[in-house]
């Protein structure tokens, strides 16, 4: 247990010591949040209705999908996990510690923007804070698991950037953070329904704000949880200690299975 505690402490410190991780955990999300608060609410007053959940989800997504996978792939490429293995660090710790600490950093920022948005930018506050907090936690779980999976299956750090952007960019444009799902053309809604941000926004809007949604909010929340669980399992199965390892063969295509619950709910919901 002492080992796990030291490992957790190390990963937590790395989240603020490593300049890239500091940028993606705190500085970039904060800067973007302030810009959206000052600029976007002026350009589009309707944004205030969704700003609180959208920004909470955004900061989580940046930390988890852009910030988490890179250090995992880099550590594998540099032989750090190989060294860890000789010390006796279990694979579960190698995966769990960066995931847990990233979740903590992301949730700290999500809490900040959730409390600050209604107060400083006149954003709508949730009618029910408990479901809001619950879905934010589920969203963090889902995104951190996806980030973990990307870090595990990506061939190298360049592939990480590509795979992260495949999730991040559509989520920003179509996932309900900038433009509500209801305003998207029908064809785009199908694509949007495959994105975790869409389900997170729909779940929060339905369960925490009491608004009409296109996707059943309870099913959307469930899809986030199942997607996260599937991604964790797949990350464990596909994990490799180093680039030469024979176990956990590289099968990035399998990682797509993690998105199946989102697609299923999109069809049902």
């Amino acid at each position: 247990m002492r080992g796990q505690i030291q490992h957790f402490a190390h990963e937590f410190r790395a989240g603020v010591r490593n300049p890239t991780q500091l940028m993606l955990n705190y500085l970039f999300p904060l800067g973007f949040y302030l810009m959206m608060g000052f600029v976007m609410t002026g350009i589009n007053p309707e944004f205030a209705n969704t700003m609180t959940p959208a920004m909470a989800i955004f900061v989580i997504m940046v930390a988890a999908v852009l910030g988490l996978p890179g250090p995992i792939a880099e550590a594998r490429e540099a032989g750090i996990y190989r060294s860890f293995r000789t010390i006796g660090v279990p694979a579960a710790s190698v995966l769990a510690m960066p995931a847990l600490t990233t979740a903590l950093h992301a949730l700290a920022m999500a809490t900040l923007v959730s409390l600050a948005s209604p107060r400083f930018f006149g954003a709508a506050a949730p009618e029910a804070w408990a479901p809001f907090a619950g879905i934010v936690l589920l969203t963090a779980f889902c995104f951190v698991a996806i980030g973990l999976l990307i870090g595990v299956v990506a061939k190298d750090s360049r592939a990480v950037t590509l795979m992260s952007q495949v999730i991040f960019l559509p989520s920003m444009l179509l996932g309900g953070l900038m433009v509500p799902l209801s305003l998207l053309p029908e064809s785009m809604r199908t694509v949007a329904a495959l994105l975790p941000t869409t389900h997170a926004m729909q779940a929060i809007e339905g369960l925490a704000f009491g608004r009409e949604t296109i996707i059943n909010p309870t099913l959307a929340a469930g899809a986030l949880g199942i997607t996260g669980a599937l991604a964790v399992v797949l990350a464990g199965v596909l994990f490799r200690w180093d680039t030469r390892a024979e176990s956990g063969a590289r099968r990035p295509i399998l990682a797509l299975l993690a998105l199946a619950p989102l697609a299923l709910v999109a069809v049902l919901g």
Binding site: H10, R13, A14, R17, N18, A75, A78, G79, I80, R82, S83, T86
Partner: peptide, 10 residues
């Protein structure tokens, strides 16, 4: 190991 490494921030 012949080539071992630790996290750069440690």
């Amino acid at each position: 190991l012949q080539t071992s490494a630790l996290p750069g921030t440690m």
